[in-house]
């Protein structure tokens, strides 16, 4: 029997350990991007000065940006600057990349949160209804078909359909008329809803399917039978036992889904014209703005690691068995 450790202490330790390993991962990612970008054809000089620049101009630029240094030295410099919060200057706009990220981040964050909320609003009830319907065939097959469909439609296809429908009509939601949340919340919501919905469809299907399996598994657990034997009502059983126990696997796929949003945001923001980080990175890619791409990938990796740490902590909170095993091990 494990004596209960202070849960705050053990969670703190877990976060610390994970953050450390996350940092190492991030360092690895940064090396990879750096090397990858320097191996892609087309150099900084070409991008900035164009194909017809004189060799002298190129050389001057190379010296200016330190591009004639050996690669490891360049990396060291870049890393040193990045550590101080300087992610470099956009080659195209000459604006600091970090400033641009900071300015655009809230928009993308809003989009991600909306997508998550929508996914939960639809996914969880679907999971519960189909999970509790149990053996009923209609419910079983229904959710399976809808789920498979929702998961296999690529988000750009869905986005194209929605953009087509809503840009030609006057139905409440708008396409391309973005307004900042702080200025006009209603217009903001009208513009953000469709992209968020597009992103959430995959999540709805993921949560509904995983949740249904989890609910089914939990309803067959002996402690649910015991709750029935104790005379608890259907709702009491759902509230007290099923929700929390079934939440554990759902949490895992939610982390997966959050990672998916990260990538999906690039496409969805571009198609709907939402001025978030995704659009910025997309433009960076298409205009070969290497500093932006480099910083974007690094940022994505950092967020992904953070999501995973958060998931781990939530696991410990939701499932006490994991918490104490960790504290011991």
């Amino acid at each position: 029997m494990a004596p209960r450790l202070s849960s705050v202490g053990s969670i703190g330790m877990v976060i610390g350990r994970r953050a450390l390993s996350g940092f190492v991962t991030l360092l690895g990612v940064s090396v990879l991007i750096f090397v990858a970008i320097h191996l892609t054809p087309g150099s900084y000089e070409q991008v900035v000065l164009g194909p017809r620049a004189t060799p002298e101009a190129r050389a001057q630029l190379a010296v200016q940006y330190g591009l004639d240094d050996p690669l490891p030295v360049q990396y060291g410099k870049w890393l040193g600057q990045a550590a101080q919060g300087d992610l470099g200057i956009s080659l195209i706009t000459q604006a600091p990349v970090l400033d641009e990220f900071v300015r655009r981040m809230p928009v993308t964050l809003e989009l991600a949160i909306m997508a998550l909320v929508i996914a939960f609003i639809f996914g969880v009830p679907l999971a519960l209804v189909s999970g509790l319907a149990g053996g009923r065939r209609a419910a079983r097959h229904g959710t399976r078909v809808v789920g498979a469909l929702a998961m296999s439609v690529p988000d750009f296809v869905l986005a194209c359909i929605l953009v087509y429908l809503f840009s030609r009509s006057q139905w409440f939601f708008t396409v391309g008329d973005f307004a900042p949340l702080g200025e006009d919340p209603v217009a903001n919501f009208r513009a953000m809803f469709l992209p968020a919905l597009t992103l959430s469809v995959f999540g709805i299907a993921l949560i509904a399917r995983t949740g249904r399996d989890a609910v089914q598994a939990v309803t067959q657990a002996l402690y649910v039978t015991a709750a029935v034997a104790a005379g608890e009502s259907r709702w009491q059983i759902i509230r007290r036992h099923i929700l929390r126990n079934a939440a554990i696997p759902v949490l895992t796929v939610t982390a997966t889904f959050a990672g998916y949003i990260l990538g999906g945001a690039v496409i969805v923001e571009t198609l709907y014209g939402i001025p978030g980080v995704g659009l910025y990175v997309f433009n960076g890619i298409s205009s070969r703005d290497y500093t932006v791409v480099q910083a974007g990938v690094l940022l994505a990796a950092a967020i992904f690691i953070a999501i995973n740490i958060l998931t781990d902590v939530l696991y410990g909170v939701l499932d006490p068995r994991i918490g104490s095993r960790r504290a011991r091990g």
Binding site: G134, Q220, V224, T225, V228
Partner: peptide
């Protein structure tokens, strides 16, 4: 076994 789930 496990019967009780259907009592829900």
């Amino acid at each position: 076994a496990g019967a009780a789930r259907h009592h829900l």
